[in-house]
Design a protein around this nucleic acid. Structure first.
Lengths: 217, 217
DNA sequence: TTAAACTGAATGAGTATTCAGTCATTATGA
DNA sequence: TCATAATGACTGAATACTCATTCAGTTTAA
């Protein structure tokens, strides 16, 4: 998918390095000033390169935005499977996935907000790439949910919809941070979310299982 | 608050009428093309006035955005109390408020998305107006929640936080409509949300009360 | 030596804002 | 009564400026 963005430069390692440089500068500027208020010259300056150079790695300004957004979504796509590594119990996997999601959102808070603000600034075809990536991430959460339902630990809910609610819960930490940070910190936010979703989703069997996890370890 | 925006024209009724005209055009254009892609000439054309006229009712382009956003938040602020009119039972009031919120979001879906996308495009002082308005609306939901908790119908949750989750649930219908509309329609969305939040929040007493409401009417 | 990477000033398209002037309406005064 | 003036909403072309993008030329490294 990064390969959908065309570059004049052929050396792949160089392309990768330069783009990382450009993305890092752009994330910061776009997050703070927004896409339209940020000029390519700003990005170039912050990245320590010339304006012309950027156009060797990207076809237009919107491509820079696309790269930035894909880099955010990529961090979701990597962190969640990493958090599930080696965990087998369905309920544990579920909490691990949701917790990991919340923590990535926290780490990349400004970029997450940027994604909400700017996705529509992309032309349709590039926007589709973003949506697909989001659906993929959602799918990971949905899969964890489904496993819990299958194991009889959770009620028979509409898995896709609930996955959205979970994702939204995580995103809200970024979107409404200006207010939420006055109400609680990240770990409290996660804890109350867990409590909330547990109440809503767990079957009696699920609840017993949950108790065991809590006490056991 | 609308009065924070200055106009050259003194006739108040005229100001109101003209602004409504400008806002109507701007909501549509901003929603579809975004704030930065929309020119003042576009707005003027759609509103059937000259570009110059707009500047008699507004000091700059950002003021147009502010007026648009305030008009969206105002519709929340009016619809919720309207839905609560004459309802006294705390649980009924709660569902009425949340349901009303979801329906306004649905009616003004594009404008809601616009609010998420564009609030940061405003300078800090004007953005504060928006945030205050949002806190006020949230307060209405929080108050309903608090009454349910006091009446022993709901668990002792962090009312402010849960209010945010409810608001977020409503907003998501707009923000993720591109995906959610494939999973369900608005009424299903609301129904599954009610089920979900009921499970998470109601006490045994609350559950019995809820049953009574459902069957009785 | 030369191809690839890079620079940064120049170009030109796009657009927020202004302002000199028009027009309809209302006040003035003879 | 009816010219004449004053008012203030309104118009839209002109201004002034901001950038995305290009490209002629320079540097780098093999």
């Amino acid at each position: 998918m990064v390969h959908d963005v065309k570059s004049q430069v052929s050396d792949e390692a160089l392309v990768h390095r330069r783009r990382a440089q450009i993305i890092a500068a752009a994330v910061e500027l776009f997050s703070h000033q927004g896409f339209y208020r940020t000029t390519i010259q700003d990005v170039a300056k912050k990245a320590g390169v010339s304006a012309g150079l950027i156009y060797q790695y990207v076809t237009d300004k919107e491509d820079v935005l696309l790269l930035v957004l894909l880099s955010v979504l990529d961090s979701y796509k990597h962190e969640i499977p990493a958090a599930l590594e080696g965990v087998t119990d369905p309920l544990e996997r579920f909490w691990a996935a949701v917790g990991a999601y919340c923590r990535v959102v926290d780490q990349r808070r400004e970029a997450t907000v940027l994604a909400y603000r700017s996705t529509k600034s992309l032309p349709d075809d590039r926007r589709r790439l973003i949506k697909e990536s989001e659906i993929e991430t959602n799918g990971m959460i949905a899969a964890c949910l489904r496993d819990c339902v299958k194991a009889g630990l959770m009620r028979e809910v509409n898995v896709e919809l609930v996955a959205y609610q979970l994702v939204t819960f995580a995103h809200s930490w970024a979107l409404k941070h200006w207010r939420l940070k006055e109400l609680c910190d990240l770990e409290e936010y996660i804890a109350q979310g867990f409590d909330f979703f547990a109440q809503a989703l767990l079957t009696p069997k699920g609840r017993r299982h949950q108790q065991k996890l809590k006490s056991g370890g």
